[in-house]
Nucleic acid binder design. Structure first.
Length: 481
RNA sequence: GUCGGUAUAUCCAAGUGGCUUAAGGAGUCGGUCUGCAAAAUCGAUAUCAUGAGUUCGAAUCUCAUUACCGACUCCA
């Protein structure tokens, strides 16, 4: 299995520190607003990565931080006259809600910055002691990049040649160098009640220190994979490396994996540009959460993705294809002979899927293998040449695929004609018998070549969300997904 | 200024030297099936941005050109 490591800018064989275990840290949300679909793209990337590692039988220990204190949050709190907790709780809840909707597996730990002040203070003390950090007159503490010669090694930038003009930094913090960054921000009156009294003074943590402190606490000084959006490479991840390696004197992260932007009409989507799309916006337009998930996962994570509702339409169609495929497996007349070809198809599909995913999560090629599989199996289905054994085999392999993709919902689709169907019909106030009666009436009309009546009945049912399928063996129905 | 990325059909998107006379999905056109649709199925739809070079052989490597995008400021 190979992953592209931002650090080396190359695909590298993945070798975890401990044989069957992967320690994974992901930069999570800053809860000062709802997370937009661009944010969720990177969280879905992590989800696919994590699920695939599990698919490969690794035990994954996953930590995702929640940033619940920073400049923007404090500002907003004051505007809305809420306490830090009141303000952030709302968005935190919304975040978890959206995670669930998008079928994103929860991390093992979601540490919050405000719960780990003491760990951050410890780390800063260590840096002060080593002389890599310094305190300024206003009580702030900065990281001194000149004491960490490797600074810039992730982003591959040369500090001396960086553009300096644009960086408008006021002198409020009295930094030695403009590139020194804050570990701790000394208290200022406008911070209001957002401060901590600590050994290193009264104030609040800088943004970067939380990830170093919390990853260290939950995953150790060196861990396997660190993820985030490409926009975090610099300065955030660069600074994390400086902090952690500066304090611990050992390698921080073995594999850095970064997710590309999601864009809208050729511009990147970000909160600061104000061109954001939220999950709820799309749900209001009646798109399903699984279609959203599908769009976000179907483009390779290192490829820019230009989001559009057209892609959602295609995704809905694609998912319907899966649903129909699985659903119709039940209607096929089953023989009892195991079909060698089907055995081969499933085997080939799973092998191809794994081979492609092993290559830095090449999801497009993996999905290609799945679609090719559907096509091949459909040919058999059409001729009623499937056995129960084949069916089991097919379902089993799709479930396996979906343990990674998380969008096909094999079980749920198979359950349509039992629990789900009953519930749905109840809300539609129609019984299965009544549907059968209508189908019969329609078939009678069809025999009499009364097409108008036949189509009327079909449309009537379709409007209720019941779709008729005319097959050689007769007419069946299913719920429209 | 210093670094970096991308360019494949109408659209999305695999493919990084021969297994590809370029996967897969969507669209469009035309068959099969159907009363007609839907679904399924078969077929059609690409001189791989441009120019030069390396090679027995290039979408794939090298150089140049053009276009777009990004980092160096908060951002997933």
């Amino acid at each position: 299995m190979k992953f592209y490591n931002t650090f080396s800018r190359k695909k590298e064989d993945f070798i975890p520190i401990n044989k069957n275990e992967v320690k994974l840290y992901s930069c999570g949300p800053t809860v000062y607003n709802f997370a937009h679909i661009g944010n969720f793209r990177s969280f879905i990337f992590v989800d696919i990565l994590k699920r695939y590692l599990q698919f490969k039988k690794y035990e994954v220990k996953h930590v995702m931080n929640i940033t619940d204190v920073d400049d923007k949050i404090i500002k907003k709190c004051h505007i809305e006259n809420l306490s830090l907790k009141e303000y952030t709780n709302k968005y935190q809840e919304a975040f978890f809600n959206d995670l669930e909707k998008l079928n994103i597996q929860e991390a093992d730990v979601f540490p919050k910055a405000t719960d780990h002040i003491s760990e951050m203070v410890e780390l800063i003390k260590k840096l002060l002691k080593k002389g890599i950090a310094y305190k300024t007159a206003d009580g702030s503490i900065f990281f001194n990049i000149s004491k960490f010669p490797e600074y810039g090694k992730l982003q591959k930038l040369n500090v001396d040649q960086m553009k300096k003009g644009e960086r408008v930094e006021t002198d409020e913090y009295n930094k030695d160098s403009v590139y020194d960054f804050a570990l701790w921000k000394g208290y200022k009156p406008e911070d209001g009640d957002v401060f901590w009294e600590t050994e290193i003074g009264k104030g609040r943590p800088g943004w970067h220190i939380e990830c170093s402190a919390m990853s260290g606490k939950y995953l150790g000084k060196t861990f396997d994979i660190h993820t985030g959006g490409v926009d975090l490479i610099f300065p955030h991840h660069e600074n994390e490396i400086a902090q952690s390696e500066g304090a611990n004197g050992q390698k921080f992260v073995n594999y850095w994996m970064h997710c590309e932007y999601l864009g809208l009409k050729d511009s990147k989507m970000s909160k600061s540009l104000g061109n954001t799309v939220f999950i709820k916006d799309l749900l209001e337009k009646n798109y399903s959460t699984r279609a959203i998930r599908f769009v976000l996962l179907s483009v390779h994570y290192r490829q820019k993705l230009n989001f559009s509702t057209e892609q959602l339409d295609i995704a809905e169609k694609t998912l319907k294809k899966f649903d129909d495929f699985i659903y119709e497996l039940q209607n096929v007349e089953m023989t009892n002979i195991k079909n060698e070809k089907i055995v081969n198809y499933t085997k080939e599909m799973l092998e191809e899927f794994e081979k492609m995913m092993d290559d830095d999560l090449n999801i497009s090629a993996s999905l290609g293998a799945v679609f090719t599989f559907l096509k091949k199996v459909n040919k058999f289905k059409i001729n009623n040449k499937l056995s129960n054994l084949d069916k089991k085999n097919i379902i089993k392999s799709l479930k396996k695929i979906d343990s990674v993709l998380g969008v096909i919902f094999v079980e749920k689709t198979l359950g349509i004609d039992t629990v789900h169907m009953e519930e749905k019909l109840q809300t539609l106030k129609i019984s299965e018998d009544e549907i059968e009666e209508k189908i019969e009436a329609r078939n009678e009309a069809r025999e009499n070549k009364n097409w108008a009546e036949a189509d009327r009945i079909r449309d009537e049912l379709l409007n209720m969300g019941i779709e008729l399928l005319d097959r050689k063996e007769g007419t069946t129905f299913k719920l429209k997904s």
